[in-house]
C-alpha cells in the first residue's frame, strides 16, 4: 500500500477544440499500487478512456488542458518534458488498445513494430531485438510465432492481433499496463482467453494494471479493485468483491443492478439506467448524477459531494450515503402489494 505506481490527485482534463470546452475529467483521485489490478467502469462517455490516456499524456497537446497531480512510476507526468515523456511511454508504462487493427500501423509487420519499440528504448541490435520479439510472441502464446512475426496486422485474426498487441506492450518490460477495453472487440470465447492471459502475465511479471471495461464479469475475474466513473469523476471505488456485493453509491447500485446469481457471470453487461449523463460542456453545479438519482434532494443539486472513506479502501462520493439504506427500505415497502 506504500508503493503506489500510479497516483492521481484532483486530476482534471479539459478539451478545448475551437469554440468549445469539454470537461471530460473533473477531479479524479486514484492510487494504484505495485502489482495491483484496478478496473474502471462506468457508462459510455464517463471519461474512462480519457483518464486512462491522460496517464500517458496521450491527448492532443494543443487542445488539451490538464491540471492536478499525475504520477506514474514515481514520475510527474504532467510536468515532464517531451523527451522524458517518450522515455516513459512504452518503457515504464504501456498501453493496450481496444481495437488492435486500428492501433497497429497497417504497413509494418508486427515483428518490425516490436523490434522498433524495443530498439527505441534499449541499445539492442536488430537480431537481438527480433529474438526478444520471438520470445514475447511465445510468451503470449501465439502459435507458429516465427511466421507470425512477419505478418501484417490485417493478416491475423482478432484474438491473435490482441495477443500481438500485448506482446508489443510488454516489449520493454513495463511496470504499468493500461488497457482500454482490451476484449470488447473480440468473440466471447477469445475474450476469456485474453483475460486469462492478462491475468497470468500480471502475476508472473508483477504488473500494475488499470483496465477499462464494460464487462462486470471480467472486472470481477481480474481486478483487485474497481472504480466507478460518472461524468468525469470517480463516484465510488473499493475492493472488487465488496463493490460487487455491497455497492453504496446510488449510481453504482443502479449500474450493477440486481445482485443475484447472474450478476457475477462473465460477459454480463452493465445495466442501463434511465435518463442521460450530463453534457460535459455544461456540468451541473452539484452532484452530476442528481438529475437521474431517485434520492437526490436540493442539497445534492447545490454542491459536488465530497468523497467519503467507508473503511478498507472503500470510498464513495454521495451526500446521502447514510440515509440510503432507510430510503431503499421504504421504497421496497411501497413496492410490496398491500
Amino acid at each position: 500500500m506504500s508503493d503506489p505506481m500510479i497516483r492521481l490527485r484532483e486530476l482534471y482534463v479539459e478539451f478545448n477544440p475551437p469554440g468549445k470546452r469539454i470537461q471530460a475529467v473533473n477531479g479524479v483521485d486514484l492510487t494504484v499500487d505495485r502489482g495491483e489490478v484496478v478496473a474502471l467502469i462506468g457508462e459510455s462517455g464517463s471519461g474512462k478512456s480519457v483518464t486512462l490516456r491522460a496517464m500517458m499524456r496521450l491527448h492532443p497537446e494543443k487542445t488539451t488542458r490538464y491540471s492536478g497531480a499525475l504520477e506514474v512510476a514515481g514520475q510527474d507526468v504532467l510536468g515532464m518534458g517531451g523527451g522524458a515523456l517518450s522515455q516513459l511511454r512504452g518503457k515504464r508504462v504501456a498501453m493496450i488498445f481496444q481495437e488492435p487493427l486500428l492501433a497497429l500501423d497497417p504497413v509494418y509487420t508486427l515483428g518490425e513494430q516490436i523490434v522498433e519499440a524495443i530498439r527505441r528504448h534499449e541499445p539492442l541490435g536488430r537480431a537481438e531485438a527480433r529474438a526478444r520479439a520471438l520470445q514475447l510472441f511465445e510468451r503470449v502464446r501465439i502459435p507458429s510465432p516465427e511466421r507470425r512475426l512477419d505478418a501484417y496486422p490485417h493478416e491475423m485474426s482478432g484474438g491473435m492481433r490482441q495477443r500481438a498487441m500485448i506482446a508489443l506492450a510488454l516489449a520493454c518490460n513495463p511496470q504499468v499496463l493500461l488497457a482500454d477495453e482490451p476484449t470488447t472487440a473480440l468473440d466471447a470465447t477469445v475474450q476469456i482467453q485474453i483475460l486469462l492471459l492478462l491475468r497470468d502475465l500480471q502475476r508472473e511479471l508483477g504488473l500494475s494494471i488499470v483496465f477499462v471495461t464494460h464487462d462486470i464479469g471480467a472486472a470481477a475475474e481480474v481486478a483487485d479493485r474497481m472504480a466507478v466513473m460518472y461524468a468525469g469523476r470517480i463516484v465510488e471505488e473499493g475492493p472488487a468483491s465488496e463493490l460487487l456485493t455491497r455497492p453504496r453509491h446510488p449510481y453504482t447500485r443502479a449500474l450493477l443492478g440486481s445482485r443475484d446469481e447472474g450478476a457475477l457471470r462473465k460477459g454480463r453487461r452493465l445495466d442501463t439506467i434511465g435518463g442521460a449523463p450530463p453534457d460535459l460542456a455544461r456540468l451541473p453545479a452539484g452532484c452530476a448524477f442528481a438529475a437521474r438519482c431517485a434520492f437526490a434532494d436540493d442539497a445534492c443539486r447545490a454542491a459536488v459531494p465530497e468523497r467519503r472513506e467507508l473503511g478498507a479502501r472503500h470510498a464513495a462520493a454521495c451526500r446521502r450515503l447514510d440515509e440510503l439504506p432507510a430510503l431503499l427500505a421504504v421504497r421496497a415497502d411501497e413496492a410490496l402489494p398491500s
Partner: peptide, 15 residues
Amino acid sequence: EFVVGLRARGLGELG
C-alpha cells in the same frame, strides 16, 4: 488511432 499507438510506444515526432 495507430498514431496514438505509436506515441504510446514512446516514438518521438521523427519516429
